Simulated assay, not measured.
Amino acid sequence: MPIAPARLSDPTVRAFVNAVNAQDRDAFMALLADDATMSDDGSDRDLADWTDREIFSSHGHMEVQRESDGGRSLVANYRNDTWGEMRTAWRFTVSDDGRISHFETGQA
């Protein structure tokens, strides 16, 4: 049974999921620290290129199945126009100012 984004525990992660699902690039970018980084399947990626390709230009969407670590770790069914749907794991590092300094994703 999916977890509705409004019920996610961590407010920053909740806003991240909402921004992805709404395809709201401005809201998404506002959640990231200026020097934010990310990795996909264990490899560091260029954040701007990856988010454009995997989220915004391909209509990415997250359906969260499970959360842990106070809401900063998710398992989600992720789908986009490029890859279809896959089970993914997401882990977020949120700084004291409530912005994401790093996130990791990959197949779960």
Rank of each mutant, 00 (worst) to 15 (best):
M1A: 01
M1C: 02
P2T: 14
I3E: 07
I3R: 04
I3W: 05
I3N: 04
A4I: 10
A4C: 06
A4W: 06
P5Q: 13
A6S: 15
A6K: 15
A6V: 14
R7Y: 04
D10S: 12
P11C: 08
T12I: 07
V13I: 09
V13Q: 01
A15Q: 10
A15D: 11
F16G: 06
V17K: 11
N18D: 15
A19R: 11
V20D: 01
N21V: 15
N21S: 14
N21G: 15
N21P: 15
A22Y: 06
Q23N: 13
D26A: 14
D26R: 13
D26F: 01
A27K: 09
A27C: 08
A27S: 14
M29E: 13
A30M: 07
L31Y: 04
L32T: 08
L32N: 09
A33Y: 03
A33E: 08
D34V: 12
D34Y: 00
D34M: 03
D35F: 08
A36Q: 05
T37R: 10
T37H: 05
T37S: 10
T37A: 11
M38P: 02
S39C: 08
S39F: 00
S39W: 07
S39P: 03
D40V: 13
G42W: 00
G42E: 01
D44M: 06
D44E: 11
D44Q: 11
R45N: 01
D46T: 04
L47F: 03
L47W: 02
A48D: 08
T51I: 11
D52G: 03
D52H: 08
D52C: 00
E54K: 02
I55E: 00
I55C: 02
I55G: 00
F56N: 04
S57M: 06
S58R: 08
G60Q: 10
G60E: 12
H61W: 12
H61L: 10
H61E: 14
M62F: 11
M62I: 09
M62P: 02
M62A: 01
M62L: 13
E63F: 00
E63K: 14
E67V: 06
D69P: 01
G70M: 12
G71D: 04
G71V: 10
G71W: 09
G71P: 11
S73W: 04
A76N: 07
A76Y: 06
Y78N: 03
R79F: 03
D81F: 09
D81T: 10
T82P: 00
G84I: 12
G84T: 11
E85T: 15
E85W: 02
E85C: 10
M86N: 04
M86H: 02
M86K: 06
M86A: 11
M86L: 05
R87A: 15
T88S: 05
A89F: 02
A89Y: 01
W90D: 06
W90Y: 15
W90P: 09
W90C: 09
R91W: 04
R91L: 07
V94C: 03
S95R: 05
S95H: 10
S95W: 01
S95E: 12
S95L: 10
D96M: 13
D97N: 13
G98C: 12
G98W: 02
R99Q: 15
I100Y: 03
H102E: 15
H102A: 14
F103V: 07
F103D: 03
T105N: 13
T105Q: 10
G106D: 06
G106E: 07
A108L: 09
